[in-house]
Design a protein around this nucleic acid. Structure first.
Length: 593
RNA sequence: GCACCCGUAGUUCAACUGGAUAGAAUAUCUGACUUCGGAUCAGAGGGUUGGGGGUUCGAAUCCCUUCGGGUGUACCA
């Protein structure tokens, strides 16, 4: 049984015994003892004073004595105000280390939960390349999926590609007009970059047209609607919806370029999907459900034939779900895909990883599903993450401040290369392997940077200061790992690695073991809070703690063979947990760097 | 206007969801065995948690108020 459970159970028994009250085990508030006090685990005794009728200290003293007597793992205790600090025996920690060494996947929940969860993330538009914001989305979705799997859930990673609509027609039209037959092959550009170029070109010419109209006396709003280019794009969209062959062929050609480009980015980034949806296939979905809902009174129709959903039960304004001409809006499709997914996969939960600007949209969506009577409506969750901002504010294509995903990845890898060459530790390694390592390190820095911040909060990216390789960073953790690997390589293979049950722990050893002990709880918390940042912060703490020990204590040299054996075991287990945690974040580890 | 989110060292982020003297990193300064890998480690300075009230044994965290920033409020996606 885990230490915390044992303490809670015994403490609960103690309260029954001392004060004759039933206090549920899991309500006993435990926390790590802060560094400046003696002890490992702390029980909060404030909540007990209401029935102990004694001061927090006295209550703590009484409970402490009981635990010392009845709990083998407790070696000593002290009370400070309402804090009962328990000192855990070295025997427990030593045995604990020996135990996790035997586990295959320490920290992961071994028993399946039986829950099926779909995580939808990425959701790119096929009119422009991915940027830094998308990278945050992708890393969150991917890492979160890993964390949920580690919690024993079955996870379906889904992507939905926004491949239709007016914005797609804009790049198509621009390519027709000014493309001169350019293809990714002819220009040597990635497919998504080619298409993105024409999206920008459209915007530029469109702005010019608007300006001309405004100069001619038209007001801006009207000019934006009347500019010839936008009218042409709208016509194209109609042709697309009417299945016009020429339009569809162009659409397919350009989409295939973009998707090939995205595949490269995804591949480099290391994210994957189990299921890829295309909006061109799903956008009609949902109409049937609306029609049905109209019949049974969930929705209502206005005189102009448009269909609405009343959301006064959730204190929101009515939402349109079908236009007067019978065409669907975006949320119509979301209704359709949600129903379809829950039915097809028998989902227990669906998580949408989408930026926080769409909080309201998802509130409305979930409210509509609730109104439609689906019992799973409440099992939808919008994981809204904050935008990635630059010091100047939001990224804006108009001002050319978009940080391109491919570019930033390449830059990070380049920086890793330069730094490595400067340090000169990889000279004997062959070129191909070197490149692989630069990749791991550069991407490790980028991914860790994106994941270490609480998803809910917006984050700042300063291109000038760029991303660090020292301090609380991916490379720091990777570096710690390579040190451990190096140690294990150096250790004689025939060395006897067993150690005595009564090994006497140094403080730094105990600190490290205590952190290892926290790992399963971290995975659980991260799964519940849907926050990879918890894993990131934990693994950083762990790496720091190891470095601290490494610097202060000798592992291979000048120590007793048993001490070497113990510390090698401790190093090895630390390495395993570092690797395990980093893989949850989607970050790979080099053996040397 | 209304709704929601955010204000924590110079800067970027933490704080076990109400617990102890608010912690890291970075930047600045100082130090580390003739190094088991210095992309490391140790130390110093740096804070009225935007301001003001309240709730209680206890508040960065909850409530009210005020100031500052962001987002949303589409028959766009």
């Amino acid at each position: 049984m885990e230490l915390e459970k044992i303490v809670q159970k015994t403490a609960s028994e103690g309260l029954k015994n001392l004060f004759d009250v039933v206090f549920p085990e899991d309500k006993i508030n435990l926390q790590k003892t802060r560094k400046d006090f003696d002890g490992d685990v702390t029980v909060l005794t404030f909540p007990f004073t209401s029935f102990s009728k004694k001061s927090p200290e006295e209550t703590g003293e009484m409970l402490g004595k009981y635990l010392l007597k009845h709990c083998d793992q407790v070696a000593d205790f002290n009370t400070v105000k309402g804090f009962l600090n328990l000192v855990i025996t070295d025997d427990y920690w030593v045995a604990f280390l020996a135990n996790i060494a035997k586990e295959d996947n320490y920290g992961h929940l071994s028993a399946p939960s039986g829950k099926i969860i779909m995580v939808e993330y990425s959701q790119p538009n096929t009119n422009k390349p991915l940027h830094l914001g998308h990278l945050r989305n992708n890393m969150l979705g991917y890492s979160l999926s890993n964390i949920l799997k580690a919690n024993g859930h079955e996870v379906i990673m889904a992507n939905i590609i926004n491949d239709r609509g007016i914005h797609i027609c804009k790049s198509m039209l621009a390519w027709q007009k000014w493309g001169d037959g350019e293809t990714p092959e002819s220009s040597g550009l990635k497919g998504d970059k080619v298409v993105g170029k024409y999206y920008v070109a459209f915007d530029k010419h469109y702005k010019e047209e608007i300006k001309e109209l405004v100069d001619g006396g038209m007001n801006e709003e009207e000019a934006a609607k009347k500019a010839p280019l936008i009218l042409e794009a709208q016509e194209m969209l109609q042709r697309w919806e009417a299945d016009d062959k020429e339009t569809r062929d162009l659409w397919e050609k350009m989409n295939s370029w973009v998707l090939a480009g995205f595949d490269v980015t995804y591949e480099n980034l290391g994210v994957t999907f189990d299921e890829v949806y295309y909006e061109s296939n799903t956008y009609i979905l949902g109409k049937d459900y609306v029609t049905e809902g109209l019949k049974n009174g969930t929705f209502y129709q206005k005189d102009d034939k448009s269909v609405w959903c009343d959301l006064s039960h959730d204190k929101m304004d009515p939402k349109l779900v079908l236009r007067a001409d019978g065409t669907s809006v975006y949320i119509t499709q979301d209704i359709g895909t949600a129903v379809q997914r829950f039915e097809e996969y028998n989902l227990d939960q669906q998580i949408y990883v989408v930026g926080d600007e769409q909080i309201h949209h998802f509130k409305v969506l979930f409210s509509i599903l609730k109104k439609m009577g689906y019992e799973w409506a409440g099992s939808n969750f919008h994981l809204s993450y904050g935008m990635v901002e630059l010091p100047s504010g939001k990224m804006k294509s108009r001002e050319g401040t978009i940080v391109d995903a491919d570019d930033i990845m390449a830059e990070m890898i380049q920086t890793a290369k330069e730094l490595s060459e400067e340090l000169g530790k990889l000279e004997e390694i062959e070129e191909q392997e070197k490149d692989r390592l630069y990749n791991l390190i550069g991407l490790g820095a980028l991914k860790y940077f994106l994941l270490k911040v609480d998803p809910k909060k917006k984050m700042l990216f300063d291109p000038k200061e760029s991303i660090d390789f020292a301090g609380n960073t991916g490379p720091f953790i990777q570096y710690t790992y390579t040190r451990i690997k190096s140690l294990l390589r150096k250790a004689e293979t025939d060395q006897n690695l067993t150690f005595s049950d009564e090994y006497d722990l140094e403080d730094k050893e105990r600190d490290l073991i205590k952190l290892l002990n926290e790992y399963p709880e971290v995975i659980k918390d991260a799964g519940e809070a849907l926050s990879p940042a918890l894993v990131a912060n934990y693994v950083y703490e762990l790496a720091k703690s190891f470095n601290n020990l490494y610097q202060a204590l000798s592992i291979l040299k000048d120590v007793d063979p048993e001490v070497t054996a113990f510390r090698l075991n401790l190093s090895s287990e630390t390495g395993k947990v570092i690797q395990s945690a980093m893989l949850l974040l989607g970050i790979e580890l080099p053996d040397r760097m």
